[in-house]
Design a protein around this nucleic acid. Structure first.
Length: 223
DNA sequence: ATGCCGGGCGAAGCCCGA
């Protein structure tokens, strides 16, 4: 819930926040050192969808409007449940909206937990994951459809190496064995891809006590 | 083919994640 978000702590640290949350389950946020404007709190295309999985905001940087979209894309497992259909529909809504965002011709970043493993090299054991909702061909196809609109996977644009992950399960010693997944992505519009100077995954936080099962991915855009 | 972790919720044990 937004009222439980530690807004004051972030303000003290110099950040404004755009937050969308719900009890127990989902939540997304954007933090910015510069004022946020034009905040959208839902992914268009289904007014009945009340899951807190989308927030979008713009801010002016160096006199130029920059737009950030923060998402928590549905997991979709099990694939024989309506959760999988919800994921596919959510991705189709995201594609439609991503197409519309291109018309702004702004530096735009689609960021977050996409729950999509793009390719074989993004999972330790592709064969074992083939039928999982994170790797099913229908899901990867929809992810590629978004890229093919003209977006760039920031990490893959700057790194050819395989086996670089953003998530490791808590179970079965996945972290110790480096059995991970690359499912958190920074997806850039042409105008932001033109400014991309660096992108990487920071494994440090995942190794700490009581860590999240995800670890940060970051990128740098420079004029 | 999942629930061996781990967190949230809420005060035990279920639900959920990926």
């Amino acid at each position: 819930m937004e009222e439980n978000f530690p807004r004051d702590a972030f303000e003290d640290a110099g950040y404004e926040a755009a937050v969308v949350g719900q009890k127990t389950y989902n939540g997304v946020a954007i933090l910015s050192r510069t004022p946020l404007e034009d905040v959208s709190r839902a992914l268009p295309g289904d007014a009945s969808d009340d899951q807190a999985r989308y927030v979008e905001a713009a801010t002016v940087l160096d006199g130029r409007m920059v737009r950030i979209v923060s998402i928590y894309l549905p997991n979709g497992n099990p694939t024989d449940s309506d959760r999988f259909g919800y994921k596919l529909k959510w991705m189709e809504r995201l594609r439609r909206h991503a197409a519309r965002l291109l018309a702004n011709e702004e530096p735009t970043v689609l960021a977050g937990d996409f729950n999509v493993i793009p390719e074989d090299g993004d999972v330790h054991d592709p064969a074992a994951w083939r039928e999982d909702a994170l790797f099913r061909i229908e899901v990867r196809r929809r992810f590629r459809e978004i890229l093919h609109l003209g977006y760039t996977d920031a990490f893959r644009a700057l790194h050819r190496e395989l086996g670089r992950y953003t998530f490791w399960d808590y179970q079965k010693g996945a972290w110790q064995k480096d059995f991970g997944l690359r499912i958190d992505h920074l997806i850039l519009s042409p105008q932001s891809a033109d400014l991309l100077t660096a992108c990487d995954i920071d494994k440090g936080p995942r190794g700490k006590p009581r860590a999240s099962d995800h670890t940060p991915i970051w990128c740098e855009l420079s004029v």
